[in-house]
Structure formats: structure tokens, C-alpha cells
Amino acid sequence: MSQAALHNLRRLKYSSNVDMSDFISNFLSLCRSANVTNIEEQKSFLLGSLHDDNIRNILASKFRPVEEFDWVIKVFQGIIYEYPLHQIRCGSKITLKHCVTGQYLSHGEHKPIAPGSPYSTVFCNGSKPRENEIWIVASPSGENKNSGDPVHFNSVIGLCHEKSRTNLCAANELASRDVWASTGKDSNCNWAVRRHATESGYLNENNGVWAIGDIVILEHANNKLPLFTQSHIEFIDSHSNSNQEVLLDGDGFEENNKWYAEIVGQ
């Protein structure tokens, strides 16, 4: 057994930038060199090659009944083709980067804005995402979407903060522009994903699904105002850190409404 090959198998990662045939050829070569012949071990290494927990879970469920190695490879290829890694799906762990300021939508521990309140502050912070900047694409309030379902433009989603398990929300009233994280979940936690555009006709097209590289606006589903921040809107939090305030503002066409999603691990 080659220890170097085994080490490389454990570190092997698949990405959408890698040619599938090259990846499979490399995987098979490493398995031979490392003398990995057990089918469950081979499945485990293929699962470990995926960054996306969502796709990994789907693949694991498809792998369970498979007992022939050739079919393991075919199932892996089929899932990757069916669920392209660059697409953002229900269950995807993402970060949301503001295109103008380069800051990430963030939330720390749940610290109520008032005693007993379910709401706490969200903000933009940091040029590199950390655990406080990870959000999970979730079903909107009132719907149950399947994990792995693609997010079509103009569809409605929820965004759950992974660390605090709170939900991105805003008030239903137009007079209030505040954006919070809420320990509860209702229709005020629903957000429409729209393409960012300079013309309203293109903005409302339903064609396509949300993917890495798309510039989007996140429009509050109830009051129809988009998520907004800009570099000169700052506040000092309880830890004396300067953060960008996040609120609802703009018409959806301006630069400060532009957000860019990145899938965690890719």
C-alpha cells in the first residue's frame, strides 16, 4: 500500500472546474496505489471529495443500495450531472457578499434588541467569511421544499443563520426598514431571489436558477423592498466593532442592492 496515495485520496476534492473523466481516472489510480478495494471505503472517499454537504447527503442516499464498483462510479457521475455544484439549492450553505463594499452579511450570537425580543441585529462585516457569515438556504415560511431543489429566480426562500439558527427577517410595515435575525419564523422571514438588472423586464424573468456568479437582489416578500447596505452606514456594536448596517432600501436597480452568493467550501 502506498501511504502517499492514501493521503492523496483523503485530500482529493472534486470541483466543477475539474474534468469529470480526469477526476475519475485520478480516483481509480489512487485507489489502486493505496490498495483500496472495499466498496464502502471507495464510497466514503468519493463522498469526502465533495465540499457541498447538501449534494453529499443526496449522493450518500443513492450509494446505499449500490454493491458494484462500476455502479458507484456511474451514480457519482449521474448525481454531479443532475446537481451541478455551482447551483445554489435548498439546503446549500452560502455566504452573501455585498458587491459594492465587499462585506459579508453577518450575525453573531442572538442578543435581543430589547429584553424578551425574538429579534437581534444583522450587519455586514469582514472581507473574508467566517462562521458568523454562513447562512443556509431554507424553505420559506408556509412551504416545505426538498433538500437539493434548485432555487429559481423570482422564487421565495428563507435564510437561516447556521451558527445561531435564527432567520433573516424584516418588518411587514413599509415605515420600518430594519432587518433582523429572528428566533421565530413567519412570512416576514421570506425573501424573493431576483436577478439584479437595470431594466424591470429582465428583473422579472423566471428563466434560470440561482448559481455562483449571479448578481442578485434579495427582496422582502411582504413589503417588496430590497436588502441594502453601503459603506458609510456604520454602527458600533457592543464589542466596539465597526459594522455596516443592513436595512431595506433602494429600488432594486442600484448598486447597493447587489449581492453575490458563494457556496461554502467552493
Score class of each variant (00 low, 15 high):
3 Q>T: 02
6 L>A: 12
7 H>F: 06
9 L>Y: 03
9 L>R: 05
13 K>D: 03
14 Y>D: 01
15 S>E: 08
19 D>Y: 06
19 D>I: 01
20 M>E: 11
22 D>I: 04
25 S>F: 01
26 N>H: 06
26 N>A: 08
29 S>L: 14
32 R>H: 13
33 S>M: 14
35 N>S: 13
36 V>D: 10
38 N>Q: 12
42 Q>M: 12
47 L>W: 09
48 G>T: 01
51 H>F: 09
51 H>R: 10
52 D>Q: 12
55 I>C: 07
55 I>T: 14
56 R>M: 11
58 I>K: 02
58 I>F: 00
59 L>H: 03
59 L>P: 07
64 R>V: 14
69 F>G: 06
71 W>I: 00
71 W>E: 15
74 K>A: 13
74 K>F: 02
75 V>Q: 11
77 Q>D: 03
78 G>C: 04
79 I>E: 08
79 I>N: 03
81 Y>V: 02
83 Y>Q: 12
84 P>C: 06
88 I>H: 02
88 I>C: 07
94 I>N: 00
94 I>G: 03
95 T>W: 01
97 K>G: 00
98 H>V: 00
102 G>A: 05
104 Y>F: 15
104 Y>S: 08
105 L>G: 00
108 G>T: 02
109 E>V: 03
111 K>I: 15
111 K>E: 14
114 A>F: 00
116 G>R: 01
117 S>E: 05
121 T>L: 12
121 T>G: 05
122 V>W: 02
122 V>S: 05
127 S>W: 01
127 S>F: 05
130 R>F: 09
135 W>A: 00
137 V>E: 08
142 G>I: 04
143 E>Q: 13
146 N>G: 08
148 G>Q: 07
149 D>E: 15
151 V>E: 07
152 H>Q: 12
152 H>N: 13
153 F>V: 03
153 F>P: 03
155 S>E: 15
155 S>K: 09
156 V>E: 10
157 I>L: 07
159 L>F: 02
162 E>S: 08
165 R>G: 00
167 N>D: 02
171 A>F: 04
178 D>W: 01
181 A>R: 04
183 T>K: 15
184 G>E: 13
189 C>G: 07
193 V>H: 06
193 V>P: 09
194 R>V: 06
195 R>W: 01
196 H>E: 07
199 E>W: 04
200 S>V: 11
203 L>T: 12
210 W>S: 03
210 W>D: 07
212 I>M: 14
213 G>T: 04
214 D>Q: 09
215 I>T: 14
223 N>S: 06
224 K>S: 05
226 P>T: 02
227 L>I: 00
228 F>T: 02
231 S>R: 13
231 S>Q: 14
232 H>Y: 14
234 E>T: 15
235 F>H: 12
240 S>T: 00
243 N>H: 09
244 Q>S: 13
244 Q>A: 10
246 V>M: 10
247 L>H: 06
253 F>R: 10
260 Y>S: 13
260 Y>Q: 12
261 A>C: 12
266 Q>N: 10
